[in-house]
C-alpha cells in the first residue's frame, strides 16, 4: 500500500511527527530567506555563515554540555559577530562583502576546529555538527517554531525596504536614508534561521534547506512573492520526502533531506519553465512580436 510508505511513519511514530513539524517550521523560515540570498547574489554568504555558527555551537557544548539553548545561543552569537563584523568592514572600507565574509568566517571556522579538537573526537558533538532531526524533542521543536515565527514576522516587516535595497539602493537612500539597517536586519534573520536548522540538520546541512529550494524556484517563478511561496513549498516537500526516505532505508535524515532538495534543484534546472535547460536547447518557433 502507498499509504504505508507515505503516512505510516508519521502515524506510528511520535519522533517522526515532530521531525515533520520541525521541517515545516524550517521551510517557512528558511524559504524566503534563501530567495533573498539568491536575489542579492549572496548565495555563498549563507554557507559562510553556517560555518561561522559552528564554533559558537561547539563552545556552547564545551561549556554546558549537550544543552540546546546553550549551543543555540553560542551559535547565534558567533554567527551574528561574523555578520556584523563583515558588514562593518564592508560599509567602512573599500572591501567588498564577499571578501570580508570570507575573512571572518574562516577565522570563525578555524576557532571551531580548535575548540572541537580540544575535546578529542566526541560522538555527541558530531551529532550537533551534522544534525539529528529524529531526536527533536519538545524544547527544540519550540525553539525551531519560535525562530520561524520571529523570522517570518521580522521578514514581512522589512520586506519592502529589503526589496528596494536589492533592486535600487540609490532610490532607497534618496527617499528613506541609508538602507544598511535593513541589510543588517536581514543578516540577523539569516543567522536565526541557520541556528534553527542546526539542531535538525546540522550546522553545515542547514544551509542546504535554505539555498536549494530557493535556487530551484528561480527556474519556475517570476516574482519575488511567488519565489518565496514556491521555495517554502519545495523546502517542506524536501523535508517530508527526505524523512520518508531516511525512515525506509535507515539513512541519516539530514543528508537525505538536503539531497532530495538537490534532486528538486536538478529537475528544475533541466525542466524549469523559466530559463531551464530544455527550454534553452529546444527552442520553439519565435513569435511575431
Amino acid at each position: 500500500m502507498m499509504a504505508d510508505i507515505f503516512l505510516d511513519p508519521f502515524t506510528h511514530f511520535e519522533f517522526m511527527r515532530r521531525a515533520l513539524i520541525a521541517c515545516l517550521a524550517l521551510a517557512l523560515g528558511s524559504g524566503p530567506v534563501g530567495v533573498f540570498l539568491v536575489l542579492r547574489r549572496m548565495s555563498l554568504v549563507g554557507d559562510a555563515l553556517s560555518h561561522a555558527i559552528m564554533p559558537g555551537a561547539a563552545a556552547g557544548f564545551l561549556i554546558a554540555g549537550l544543552s540546546l539553548p546553550a549551543m543555540s545561543l553560542g551559535g547565534f552569537v558567533a554567527g551574528l559577530c561574523v555578520a556584523l563584523l563583515s558588514g562593518i568592514v564592508t560599509r567602512l572600507t573599500r572591501q567588498r562583502e564577499d571578501a570580508s565574509f570570507a575573512a571572518f568566517y574562516l577565522m570563525s571556522l578555524a576557532a571551531g576546529v580548535l575548540i572541537v579538537s580540544m575535546r578529542g573526537s566526541n560522538v555527541d558533538l558530531m551529532h550537533v555538527l551534522f544534525g539529528t532531526i529524529l531526536a527533536v524533542d519538545d524544547l527544540s521543536l519550540l525553539l525551531v517554531a519560535g525562530i520561524a515565527s520571529v523570522s517570518t514576522l521580522l521578514f514581512s516587516l522589512i520586506y519592502r525596504p529589503l526589496v528596494v535595497e536589492c533592486f535600487d539602493p540609490g532610490f532607497l537612500r534618496s527617499v528613506h536614508g541609508r538602507g544598511s539597517v535593513y541589510h543588517m536586519a536581514f543578516l540577523v534573520i539569516v543567522v536565526l534561521n541557520l541556528v534553527a536548522g542546526f539542531q535538525a540538520l546540522g550546522t553545515l546541512m542547514a544551509v542546504g534547506l535554505m539555498m536549494l529550494p530557493a535556487a530551484a524556484s528561480r527556474f519556475w517563478a517570476r516574482e519575488v512573492w511567488s519565489l518565496g511561496l514556491l521555495s517554502i513549498a519545495l523546502a517542506f516537500l524536501s523535508g517530508y520526502a527526505g524523512l520518508v526516505i531516511s525512515f525506509r532505508h535507515n539513512l541519516p535524515s539530514g543528508p537525505a533531506i538536503v539531497l532530495f532538495a538537490g534532486a528538486i534543484y536538478v529537475f528544475s534546472f533541466v525542466f524549469g519553465s523559466n530559463g531551464g535547460l530544455i527550454g534553452a536547447l529546444l527552442p520553439r518557433r519565435h513569435l511575431q512580436a
Partner: peptide
C-alpha cells in the same frame, strides 16, 4: 530630502530583479 526626486544613472539598478513594472512605479 523628501521633496527631491533623484534619477540615478542607469547602471545603478538591478535590471534582472523579479519585479513587475507597476510595482516599481508604485515605489
Amino acid at each position: 530630502c523628501g521633496d527631491i526626486a533623484y534619477l540615478p544613472q542607469q547602471a545603478d539598478i538591478d535590471r534582472e530583479f523579479p519585479l513587475s513594472v507597476l510595482d516599481v512605479v508604485l515605489l
